[in-house]
């Protein structure tokens, strides 16, 4: 989807965060890959819910996303707390 110019703060923050994760887990590509999978799962659930117009409850809540990422980033407190800045209702 096209990126919108009127949201540069969130976009720049997301770029720098993704870069940070990539660098941190350079030697552990599976961790980075799992993180991407969690994000995509979340996005898919959100999309399903949106398309169903309220008649579908996402199977993955923000709390569950946070818990999964916490498991993944267990010794990386800074990455986890920064992730919390992205999550709605974290």
């Amino acid at each position: 989807p096209p990126l919108q110019n009127n949201q540069p703060v969130e976009f720049n923050h997301a770029i720098s965060y993704v870069n940070k994760i990539k660098n941190r887990f350079q030697g552990q590509p599976n961790i980075y890959k799992s993180f991407l999978e969690i994000l995509h799962k979340y996005q898919k659930e959100q999309r399903n819910a949106k398309e169903a117009g309220g008649s579908y409850t996402p199977a993955l809540t923000e709390q569950e996303v946070y818990a999964e990422v916490a498991q993944l980033f267990k010794n990386q407190e800074d990455l986890l707390s920064e992730f919390g800045q992205f999550l709605p209702d974290a």
Binding site: P1, L3, Q7, E10, F11, H13, A14, I15, Y17, V18, N19, K22, F35, L36, L39, H40, Y42, Q43, Q85, F86, L87, P88, D89, A90
Partner: peptide, 27 residues
Amino acid sequence: SYDFTPLDSSAVYVLSSMARQRRASQS
């Protein structure tokens, strides 16, 4: 570095839309 793969770009997209949603719900 900014050598992003399409997968990275989609992660950026998800994260920034999450942050937008968060901001919208706070304001």
